[in-house]
């Protein structure tokens, strides 16, 4: 609606200053958040294309479904906890409080690290059970997609660790507010991606 209206206006008829300090059509938020949301869209495209490839490859005759180890449920729990803790930390900084901030923010990161460790253990177990990457495309997709997800999480942890250092070196909550908010958004996104991946992997 807004977009249609924008692109159908006749710009040569409208003279003078339009809009305030923020240009017309800009989002009412920080540029960093716009950039992150846009990045999340791109990351979704990457994961979607892998999933499309997964479904196409699945149709071919040599496919043998991989039965996902039960440990993934445990890992999922860790990631959910990580997301919950981030949300907690976000609520704290938005209210410009400080109580429990350390617990929430560091807890979130620790759970994420535990998730990655859990994923690595799962890979190890699968390898030990003879489910090699080369033995079947289903296995290969499993390692590829979970690995890519873990890489995204590692990227997030890098940002988290930078904010942690700032927090430890005495930054006020409002200084790291944006960083915490964006991390939370990113974590929720990665949780969602994981749930979709897990759902697809477990059901095929």
């Amino acid at each position: 609606m807004g977009l249609i209206k924008t692109v159908t206006e006749k710009p040569w008829e409208r003279k003078g200053v339009i809009g305030g300090m923020r240009p017309e059509g800009a989002f009412d938020t920080e540029s960093e958040r716009v950039a992150l949301v846009y990045f999340l869209v791109i990351a979704s495209v990457v994961f979607s294309l892998f999933l499309v490839s997964y479904y196409i490859r699945m149709e071919l005759p040599d496919w043998q479904p991989l039965s996902e180890p039960g440990q993934l449920w445990f890992n999922t729990g860790l990631l959910v906890l990580s997301s919950v803790f981030f949300q907690w930390a976000r609520n704290i900084v938005v209210n410009e409080e400080k109580r429990n901030l350390y617990t929430a923010f560091f807890g979130a990161g620790v759970f994420a690290i535990l998730f990655i460790v859990g994923q690595m253990v799962t890979w190890e177990n699968l390898q030990a059970g003879g489910y090699y990457m080369t033995s079947n495309p289903a296995n290969a997709f499993y390692y590829l997609m979970t690995g890519l997800h873990a890489l995204h999480l590692l990227g997030g942890l890098w940002v988290w660790s930078k904010s942690s250092i700032r927090l430890l070196s005495g930054s006020e909550p409002k200084d790291i507010k944006l960083s915490v908010e964006l991390c939370t958004l990113y974590w929720h996104f990665l949780l969602l991606v994981w749930l979709v991946l897990f759902g697809v992997l477990a059901n095929t």
Partner: peptide, 24 residues
Amino acid sequence: FTMGGLNYVVTILQYRCRGMTLMR
């Protein structure tokens, strides 16, 4: 490309000067 592209998109959306509407 992704780093550059994010910059162009966000700059065009958010950093236009006063009065620079999309259709201008």
